[in-house]
Computed example of a mutant assay.
Amino acid sequence: MIDLDLLARYGPRMLDGLWVTVQLVALSIVIGGLIAFPVALARISRIAVLRWIAFAYVYFFRGTPLLAQVFLVYYGAGQFRVELDSVGLWWFFRDAFYCAAFTFTLNTSAYQAEILRGAILAVPRGQTEAALSLGLRMPVIYLKVILPQAYIIALRPLGNEVVLMIKGSAIASVITVFDLMGATRLAFARSFDFQVYLWAAVLYLIMVETLRRIWNRIEQRLTRHLRLAR
Results as ranks from 00 to 15, higher is better:
residue 79 Q to T: 00
residue 66 L to V: 15
residue 58 V to P: 12
residue 58 V to T: 14
residue 92 F to I: 14
residue 71 F to T: 03
residue 87 V to R: 13
residue 80 F to D: 05
residue 73 V to R: 09
residue 75 Y to K: 03
residue 69 Q to T: 07
residue 62 R to M: 11
residue 68 A to W: 15
residue 100 A to V: 10
residue 61 F to Q: 05
residue 73 V to M: 03
residue 72 L to G: 07
residue 82 V to K: 11
residue 60 F to V: 14
residue 68 A to T: 15
residue 89 L to T: 07
residue 100 A to P: 00
residue 87 V to N: 12
residue 88 G to T: 03
residue 65 P to H: 07
residue 92 F to R: 02
residue 99 C to H: 00
residue 73 V to P: 04
residue 65 P to G: 08
residue 75 Y to D: 06
residue 70 V to K: 00
residue 81 R to C: 03
residue 58 V to G: 08
residue 74 Y to L: 14
residue 73 V to N: 07
residue 86 S to K: 05
residue 85 D to W: 03
residue 77 A to E: 02
residue 74 Y to S: 03
residue 85 D to P: 09
residue 68 A to D: 15
residue 74 Y to I: 12
residue 56 A to F: 13
residue 63 G to W: 04
residue 83 E to Y: 00
residue 66 L to C: 13
residue 73 V to Q: 04
residue 74 Y to Q: 05
residue 97 F to C: 09
residue 55 F to Q: 09
residue 64 T to Y: 10
residue 79 Q to A: 13
residue 56 A to I: 07
residue 99 C to W: 04
residue 66 L to P: 05
residue 55 F to A: 15
residue 65 P to S: 05
residue 88 G to Y: 05
residue 69 Q to W: 09
residue 81 R to M: 08
residue 69 Q to F: 01
residue 73 V to Y: 00
residue 77 A to N: 00
residue 57 Y to C: 08
residue 89 L to G: 07
residue 77 A to L: 01
residue 95 D to A: 08
residue 71 F to S: 08
residue 96 A to P: 12
residue 98 Y to S: 12
residue 72 L to Q: 01
residue 80 F to G: 05
residue 81 R to Y: 04
residue 60 F to Y: 11
residue 81 R to L: 01
residue 89 L to N: 05
residue 73 V to S: 03
residue 99 C to S: 12
residue 68 A to L: 15
residue 58 V to M: 14
residue 96 A to T: 09
residue 65 P to R: 02
residue 88 G to C: 06
residue 99 C to D: 01
residue 78 G to I: 11
residue 84 L to S: 04
residue 85 D to C: 05
residue 78 G to E: 09
residue 56 A to M: 10
residue 63 G to N: 05
residue 80 F to I: 10
residue 89 L to D: 09
residue 62 R to K: 10
residue 100 A to F: 10
residue 97 F to A: 06
residue 85 D to K: 05
residue 83 E to A: 11
residue 94 R to D: 13
residue 61 F to L: 12
residue 65 P to A: 06
residue 96 A to N: 09
residue 100 A to S: 13
residue 84 L to W: 02
residue 92 F to W: 15
residue 81 R to T: 08
residue 60 F to I: 12
residue 58 V to A: 15
residue 91 W to I: 00
residue 96 A to W: 06
residue 64 T to D: 06
residue 59 Y to I: 04
residue 74 Y to A: 14
residue 68 A to M: 15
residue 72 L to W: 11
residue 69 Q to A: 13
residue 65 P to N: 12
residue 64 T to Q: 07
residue 100 A to R: 14
residue 76 G to P: 13
residue 55 F to I: 00
residue 61 F to A: 02
residue 78 G to Y: 09
residue 96 A to V: 00
residue 80 F to Q: 12
residue 74 Y to G: 11
residue 62 R to C: 04
residue 100 A to T: 07
residue 91 W to R: 11
residue 85 D to G: 13
residue 83 E to C: 03
residue 96 A to K: 12
residue 99 C to G: 02
residue 95 D to P: 01
residue 94 R to E: 14
residue 56 A to Q: 08
residue 83 E to R: 02
residue 99 C to P: 02
residue 95 D to V: 07
residue 93 F to H: 10
residue 69 Q to N: 10
residue 82 V to M: 08
residue 78 G to F: 08
residue 66 L to E: 13
residue 72 L to T: 00
residue 79 Q to I: 03
residue 58 V to Y: 12
residue 91 W to V: 03
residue 76 G to C: 02
residue 61 F to P: 04
residue 94 R to W: 05
residue 76 G to T: 01
residue 81 R to P: 06
residue 87 V to C: 06
residue 56 A to E: 05
